[in-house]
Design a protein around this nucleic acid. Structure first.
Lengths: 351, 351
DNA sequence: TGTGTTCTCGTAAACGTTTACGGCAAAACG
DNA sequence: CGTTTTGCCGTAAACGTTTACGAGAACACA
């Protein structure tokens, strides 16, 4: 429909135009462009020159149709429900890395946006069934994730940022070691004399929330500290969530002397709430963030936390995805890689 | 290449399978699916049922090829150079609105990532020449914007978030009134007794930086205040930028009593710098941000600033884009809409 | 009954590629 | 010189759709 208006413009040149212009067949043009061996060196050069001059690039639809592959990978991005304005800064450097690595294999990255709330299922089906991409990358994996079940069921290539119990754990993935970070945070706080340590976390459906809490609990027990449910609170994984939920744990009859937040956004909202209660983070109470971003450096006080290396993770997940796809795997064949990366502690002023 | 492995799986059903299954021709199936009039009501229902049962959706490449349109709109997203980790939270709600509105017209939104630094030109050409999308949406418009020149030159449909001097101002666009916000900020500060007002802004290539500064200057002159170049500083449009540049203006021999930051990220970095100099924002110095996000509410002090309504802007820009494309414009034909929206002042504690 | 209209559907071409196949000429080989 | 190989290229089919066109049947009308 749309393109009706853009019929015979200079940029709409097809391989036929190119062939006619050069007085050779379209087959030869195609072979020259695709770097096949059975074409004369001179001819190839002439084709390349002409293509550059006429601004010719093969039509993606035609190429995809014939090849049976779109040469592009989809990342499913979705705003959280209840997340009115502020979103996923986390993903930008990750996507930068992902894109860069995919480009090395001649693949395009497309980000498909979902509507908040529908949890991507519908949109994912659409991408898969219409074959808009050759593989997808999922984030925000849940403990039980219907997206993963679906993709494994239909046999569509994918990789996940984050683990999950779904899909028989047989899909390629890259995750951060939230469990260790949770435990390390506790260790660090205990070493500084804290015994009453709170945890502010998102829904346990989100696998990283689950892992964080598991590490937190385990470390607490290791130190012989009883886990107090009153010190664990759940909120939306954004500023508002942290802001709303922090007062709850502070109002417990034996309040915490330290709080671990699952990410910087929650911590930001939480610190605001603390300040309003007259409690000064870094002074009256210790604060640690599990998933930190450079933003934390600019808080007052600057927040101590664990930093993921997002851009390398993006690059690596691209490799992991490609390694799982026969057509792209190296000579040793396709294999499923599942990695867990450490988080790096950035010590600052808040604990 | 990639899809080689996914040959005859349930989800790879084509219109031929469907037709064979129903014992009718593919032409009829297609017509039924596309809601054309010349197909019997019973037949249509049978086709629809079978399509649902077999999980059939038309292959996007085939459809695009035949239709000459991909039914999708591309948004060019690009991380800033020098912006190591933190990115574009600004865009998420905008994209949510854009996506929602496009979906109403059966269009998909795809976000294409660029590599930091190349300023999209190459990537944009690729999208256009390979006809991966039917139209594109640009953001971060510059005063002179080669992307806009290129797109108008080749006649490819597009719309911009932000104005520009390029392209003869004949393309559809939606922008915020940064000039008025800049002036309003000055008015507000002057009314509160300030005369030494600094402006921290990004490169003037970025049109919103240019507009902001124009408003700032104009208002200053209106109040009979001389514009002091020492109070105007340029930095990267992120935390690091604000952090690096704020000390410069504070070290001028007649330091400001108020600072206007171009966005919340710069303000965050700037406030940190101020705190380290022993200057308390909201107490020793007034701070206002031009492009605010909900994040600002959680600063200490909570920042006063001007808020864009991003999600509605996304929706509106979708309308504006579609209105410019004949195939989608209503009965009154295609028209170029250019709108400038106000920013809403959110008064808080920092000024 | 003959003619015209309407409804429904099948046929086939077309969109822009890629690629298997075959053919021709030149080169290599005996 | 005859045969085989090699290098290079053109032909045509195929990918999965949509749609112009035409045909047959049913129906209406005179």
């Amino acid at each position: 429909m749309i393109a009706k208006q853009g019929e015979n413009r200079p940029l709409a040149s097809s391989i036929h135009d190119l062939a006619r212009h050069l007085n050779i067949s379209i087959g030869t043009v195609s072979r020259a462009l695709n770097g096949r061996a059975d074409v004369n060196a001179d001819t190839r050069q002439r084709v390349l020159d002409a293509a550059a001059k006429l601004n010719y690039s093969p039509n993606q639809s035609g190429r995809s149709l014939r090849r049976g592959a779109t040469q592009s990978i989809a990342f499913m991005l979705q705003p959280h429900p209840g997340d009115q304005q502020y979103g996923e800064p986390f993903f930008i450097p990750f996507l930068t890395g992902l894109q860069a690595k995919l480009a090395e294999s001649g693949l395009d990255l497309i980000v498909v946006m979902g509507a908040p709330g529908d949890y991507q299922q519908e949109r994912l089906r659409r991408v898969v069934e219409t074959r808009r991409a050759d593989a997808v990358v999922l984030a925000y994996t849940r403990r039980e994730d219907e997206r993963i079940d679906y993709l494994t069921r239909v046999g569509f290539p994918f990789a996940t940022l984050g683990r999950s119990r779904s899909g028989g754990k047989t899909h390629p993935s890259l995750d951060l070691d939230f469990e260790k970070a949770g435990a390390d945070a506790v260790d660090r706080l205990v070493a500084r004399g804290h015994r009453r340590i709170a945890a502010i976390r998102p829904s346990l459906n989100l696998n990283f929330g689950y892992l964080f809490l598991a590490g937190y609990r385990k470390a607490l027990r290791r130190h012989g500290i009883e886990v107090d449910p009153g010190l664990i609170a759940k909120g939306f994984i954004n500023e508002a969530g942290g802001n709303a939920v922090t007062p709850q744990v502070m109002r417990s009859k034996d309040p915490p002397t330290a709080i671990i937040f699952n990410n910087d956004a929650m911590a930001l909202g939480g610190c605001k709430a603390l300040a309003e209660m007259g409690i000064k983070p870094g002074h009256d109470i210790a604060v640690i963030v599990i998933v930190e971003t450079p933003l934390c450096r600019y808080f007052s006080p600057a927040l101590t936390g664990f930093r993921p290396s997002l851009e390398p993770m993006g690059r690596r997940l691209a490799e992991i995805l490609l390694a799982s796809i026969p057509a792209f795997a190296g000579p040793d064949g396709a294999r499923i890689i599942r990695e867990v990366w450490p988080l790096e502690l950035i010590a600052r002023d808040s604990d």
